[in-house]
């Protein structure tokens, strides 16, 4: 029983951390939901928010991801590249 309680407390506190940490938010802007729904299929979003790339750099990355299987609709590609370049461009400060 004691073990069960310890397990409960540890797990509960752990889950709480996970739930709160889920609040890693993307900045508002056109394309945000598209980035979330396509990029996060295969990887977490920290790898997105921790980059600082030029528009060309983001263009290369998005093209590479599409080549590797990211399900990006042709009409969404520009929106996604623009969102990433505006919010995670070279001149943006790293948190």
């Amino acid at each position: 029983m004691k073990i069960a309680i310890i397990v409960f407390i540890l797990t509960a506190s752990y889950l709480t951390t996970a739930i709160f940490a889920q609040a890693l938010q993307l900045p508002e802007g056109e394309g945000k939901e598209k980035v979330r729904s396509t990029c996060a299929l295969c990887h977490g979003l920290e790898i997105v928010t921790s980059q600082r790339l030029s528009r060309n750099g983001w263009n290369d990355i998005v093209e590479r991801m599409i080549k590797w299987g990211a399900p990006v609709q042709p009409e969404d590609k520009k929106v996604i590249i623009n969102y990433l370049s505006v919010n995670f461009g070279e001149e943006k400060k790293l948190r």
Binding site: Y14, A18, I19, L24, H43, G44, E46
Partner: peptide, 30 residues
């Protein structure tokens, strides 16, 4: 297996046994 179960659903900042680390990515774990 906690971390494994977790990385499929949550973005998180703490991994059991690796609490001191800086999380670069939660999925995959880096």
């Amino acid at each position: 297996a906690i971390a494994q179960a977790t990385e499929k659903s949550f973005e998180q900042t703490v991994f059991p046994g690796k609490e001191k680390m800086t999380v670069l990515s939660s999925k995959p774990i880096v």
